[in-house]
Protein backbone atom coordinates (compact mmCIF):
# COMPACT_ATOMS: atom_id res chain seq x y z
CA UNK A 1 0.00 0.00 0.00
CA UNK A 2 2.70 2.42 0.96
CA UNK A 3 4.71 1.62 -2.18
CA UNK A 4 1.74 2.54 -4.37
CA UNK A 5 1.46 5.85 -2.53
CA UNK A 6 5.19 6.43 -2.92
CA UNK A 7 5.00 5.75 -6.67
CA UNK A 8 2.06 8.17 -6.95
CA UNK A 9 4.05 10.75 -4.97
CA UNK A 10 7.08 10.41 -7.24
CA UNK A 11 4.87 10.50 -10.35
CA UNK A 12 3.16 13.66 -9.14
CA UNK A 13 6.38 15.54 -8.52
CA UNK A 14 7.95 14.16 -11.70
CA UNK A 15 5.02 15.39 -13.75
CA UNK A 16 5.19 18.76 -11.95
CA UNK A 17 8.87 19.01 -12.87
CA UNK A 18 8.16 18.19 -16.52
CA UNK A 19 5.40 20.84 -16.61
CA UNK A 20 7.58 23.47 -14.94
CA UNK A 21 10.57 22.90 -17.20
CA UNK A 22 8.35 22.71 -20.28
CA UNK A 23 6.72 25.99 -19.30
CA UNK A 24 10.13 27.55 -18.76
CA UNK A 25 11.18 26.35 -22.21
CA UNK A 26 8.11 27.91 -23.86
CA UNK A 27 8.61 31.21 -21.99
CA UNK A 28 12.27 31.34 -23.09
CA UNK A 29 11.31 30.45 -26.68
CA UNK A 30 8.76 33.25 -26.71
CA UNK A 31 11.33 35.73 -25.37
CA UNK A 32 13.89 34.66 -27.99
CA UNK A 33 11.20 35.07 -30.63
CA UNK A 34 10.34 38.59 -29.46
CA UNK A 35 14.03 39.49 -29.72
CA UNK A 36 14.62 37.75 -33.06
CA UNK A 37 11.57 38.38 -35.24
CA UNK A 38 11.84 41.23 -37.73
CA UNK A 39 8.86 43.54 -37.14
CA UNK A 40 6.23 44.48 -34.59
CA UNK A 41 3.33 42.40 -35.92
CA UNK A 42 5.38 39.20 -36.08
CA UNK A 43 6.66 39.82 -32.54
CA UNK A 44 3.07 39.72 -31.30
CA UNK A 45 2.91 36.01 -32.17
CA UNK A 46 6.03 35.19 -30.18
CA UNK A 47 4.64 37.08 -27.17
CA UNK A 48 1.49 34.96 -27.48
CA UNK A 49 3.52 31.77 -26.97
CA UNK A 50 4.55 32.98 -23.52
CA UNK A 51 1.06 34.11 -22.62
CA UNK A 52 -0.72 30.87 -23.47
CA UNK A 53 1.48 27.79 -23.33
CA UNK A 54 4.17 29.04 -20.93
CA UNK A 55 1.84 30.38 -18.25
CA UNK A 56 -0.55 27.39 -18.47
CA UNK A 57 2.25 24.83 -18.09
CA UNK A 58 4.00 26.64 -15.22
CA UNK A 59 0.76 27.18 -13.28
CA UNK A 60 -0.29 23.54 -13.83
CA UNK A 61 3.10 22.40 -12.50
CA UNK A 62 2.76 24.59 -9.40
CA UNK A 63 -0.81 23.33 -8.85
CA UNK A 64 0.49 19.74 -8.91
CA UNK A 65 3.01 20.66 -6.21
CA UNK A 66 0.41 22.48 -4.09
CA UNK A 67 -2.15 19.65 -4.25
CA UNK A 68 -5.80 20.07 -3.23
CA UNK A 69 -5.43 23.29 -1.23
CA UNK A 70 -6.65 26.86 -1.35
CA UNK A 71 -3.33 27.74 -2.95
CA UNK A 72 -4.28 25.73 -6.03
CA UNK A 73 -7.51 27.70 -6.30
CA UNK A 74 -5.51 30.93 -6.22
CA UNK A 75 -3.11 29.64 -8.88
CA UNK A 76 -6.11 28.68 -11.03
CA UNK A 77 -7.46 32.22 -10.58
CA UNK A 78 -4.10 33.66 -11.70
CA UNK A 79 -4.31 31.41 -14.76
CA UNK A 80 -7.90 32.46 -15.45
CA UNK A 81 -7.05 36.17 -15.25
CA UNK A 82 -4.03 35.74 -17.54
CA UNK A 83 -6.13 33.68 -19.97
CA UNK A 84 -8.82 36.38 -20.10
CA UNK A 85 -6.64 39.49 -20.14
CA UNK A 86 -3.72 38.49 -22.39
CA UNK A 87 -5.66 38.27 -25.71
CA UNK A 88 -7.38 41.57 -24.88
CA UNK A 89 -4.06 43.29 -24.17
CA UNK A 90 -2.48 41.81 -27.32
CA UNK A 91 -5.43 42.94 -29.41
CA UNK A 92 -5.27 46.41 -27.84
CA UNK A 93 -1.58 46.83 -28.72
CA UNK A 94 -2.09 45.47 -32.24
CA UNK A 95 -5.15 47.61 -32.83
CA UNK A 96 -3.35 50.75 -31.59
CA UNK A 97 -0.46 50.07 -33.98
CA UNK A 98 -2.88 49.41 -36.84
CA UNK A 99 -4.82 52.62 -36.13
CA UNK A 100 -1.52 54.52 -36.07
CA UNK A 101 -0.88 53.23 -39.63
CA UNK A 102 2.17 51.12 -38.72
CA UNK A 103 2.88 49.11 -41.87
CA UNK A 104 3.27 45.35 -41.46
CA UNK A 105 6.03 43.42 -43.20
CA UNK A 106 4.38 41.21 -45.80
CA UNK A 107 5.54 38.72 -48.42
CA UNK A 108 8.40 36.33 -47.70
CA UNK A 109 11.10 37.04 -45.14
CA UNK A 110 14.28 34.96 -44.82
CA UNK A 111 16.95 35.13 -42.13
CA UNK A 112 19.86 32.79 -42.77
CA UNK A 113 22.61 31.74 -40.40
CA UNK A 114 25.11 34.19 -41.86
CA UNK A 115 22.89 37.05 -40.79
CA UNK A 116 21.97 38.44 -44.20
CA UNK A 117 18.29 39.29 -44.30
CA UNK A 118 16.07 39.59 -47.29
CA UNK A 119 12.39 40.11 -47.71
CA UNK A 120 9.75 42.65 -47.02
CA UNK A 121 8.57 42.62 -50.64
CA UNK A 122 4.94 43.59 -50.90
Amino acid sequence: MSTVLEILHIARFGLAGVFLLGGGFFVLAGAIGVLRLPDFYTRLHAAGVTDTMGSTLILLGLMLIAGFTLLSVKLALVGLFLFLTSPTATHAVANAAHKAKLKPLLGTYRQTRKGDNEGGSQ
Binding site: L20, G30, F40, A47, G54, I58, V78, T90, V93, A100
Partner: peptide, 23 residues
Amino acid sequence: PELYDRVLAVNSFGTKTVLFLCV
Protein backbone atom coordinates in the same frame (compact mmCIF):
# COMPACT_ATOMS: atom_id res chain seq x y z
CA PRO B 1 12.27 50.86 -32.60
CA GLU B 2 8.55 51.65 -32.26
CA LEU B 3 6.53 52.71 -29.24
CA TYR B 4 4.32 49.63 -29.70
CA ASP B 5 7.31 47.29 -29.46
CA ARG B 6 8.03 48.80 -26.06
CA VAL B 7 4.43 48.50 -24.90
CA LEU B 8 4.40 44.86 -26.02
CA ALA B 9 7.68 44.25 -24.18
CA VAL B 10 6.33 45.84 -20.98
CA ASN B 11 3.15 43.77 -21.17
CA SER B 12 5.05 40.54 -21.80
CA PHE B 13 7.52 41.42 -19.02
CA GLY B 14 4.55 41.82 -16.69
CA THR B 15 3.20 38.38 -17.60
CA LYS B 16 6.61 36.90 -16.86
CA THR B 17 6.72 38.81 -13.56
CA VAL B 18 3.41 37.22 -12.53
CA LEU B 19 4.78 33.75 -13.31
CA PHE B 20 8.07 34.60 -11.58
CA LEU B 21 6.24 35.72 -8.41
CA CYS B 22 4.27 32.44 -8.34
CA VAL B 23 7.36 30.27 -8.83
